[in-house]
């Protein structure tokens, strides 16, 4: 007998943190096993499921950062502390820090893509002696859309953590401009390993900047977003060239997907 892949698990929300006007981080009590870069399918009664990347897990508390972008996510964002959350997972491959051992690890993220990078960044901080350096570049549209502001002080202290805002703001003293400019400004080693997550156009143009610095696409790993419905490689919705993003990804080595990624309507 094969186990039903669609059965949902129950977990309690122990903390709800407001990140921005439409984005919350949920801390969920949970004794499952997860890896950084993976995602869960989160279900809301009567509305459906949405794939949500795992923003953290310490063995007891699972973190999901969810922006109210569609019907499912809007409803999940209405949940409160003490409410139950239903999910299935974890799914997909993971950020493999082993690849970056002894090298400079560069994390690049844009917008909500930072949620898919946060946990691996925290792991990298714990193991930072294993890398020649850890650099994290994060681009956010506005000052008000910055995520995890309550962690910045620690991250600034631990690694080379840089933020850029697309739009200037009087409250912001740091870098302003697109993430590509921040990449351009930052000194990066040729043999760096890059983990990246963000909107498709951001990824495309960031790769170009990284290449200018001599970082080849085989050293760049990208977490992709596609229409995932079943998440078990059978509904076909997330298909991208020869890949099922749900099970072959969501993380891909850029050199392996470039020919599809940079083409329209694949």
């Amino acid at each position: 007998m094969v186990e039903n892949p669609y059965l949902l698990k129950e977990a309690e929300i122990v903390e709800k943190i407001k990140e921005t006007t439409d984005t919350y981080t949920f801390r969920i009590k949970c004794s499952d096993s997860f890896k950084p870069g993976q995602y869960n399918m989160i279900y809301y009664f009567g509305i459906g499921e949405a794939p949500i990347s795992i923003a953290g897990f310490d063995g007891e508390i699972l973190e999901h950062t969810i922006r109210a972008a569609g019907d499912v996510t809007s409803h999940i964002d209405s949940l409160k502390e003490g409410d139950l959350l239903y999910y299935r997972g974890s799914y997909g491959n993971f950020w493999d820090l082993e690849i970056a051992k002894g090298k400079s690890l560069v994390l690049v993220s844009g917008g909500l893509g930072f949620a898919a990078i946060k946990w691996v960044m925290e792991e990298a901080i714990k193991r930072k002696d294993e890398f020649s350096s850890v650099i994290s570049l994060y681009g956010s549209k506005n000052y008000d859309s910055l995520l995890y502001t309550y962690h910045y002080e620690m991250w600034y202290r631990e690694i080379d953590f840089k933020i850029t805002l697309d739009n200037p703001d009087p409250r912001w003293k740091g870098d302003v401009g697109l993430i590509t400019e921040l990449i351009r400004k930052t000194k990066l080693n040729k043999d760096s390993i890059v983990f990246m997550c963000g909107p498709d156009p951001m990824v495309k143009f960031s790769v170009i900047e990284l290449e200018k610095k001599g970082i080849t696409p085989d050293r760049i790993y990208v977490s992709m977003e596609r229409h995932m419905k079943c998440s078990v490689g059978t509904c076909g919705h997330c298909m991208f060239g020869p890949f099922f993003v749900c099970k072959d990804g969501p993380i891909f080595r850029y050199s392996e997907i470039r020919e599809f990624f940079e083409r329209k309507e694949v």
Partner: peptide, 24 residues
């Protein structure tokens, strides 16, 4: 061809929701 969609069929007053697989 194997693709399918998953849709929710709701019966609001009875607090029931069905998850339905349908050819896509």
């Amino acid at each position: 061809c194997f693709c399918f969609d998953i849709v929710e069929k709701n019966n609001v007053n009875e607090g029931l929701s069905e998850r339905v697989r349908i050819y896509d």
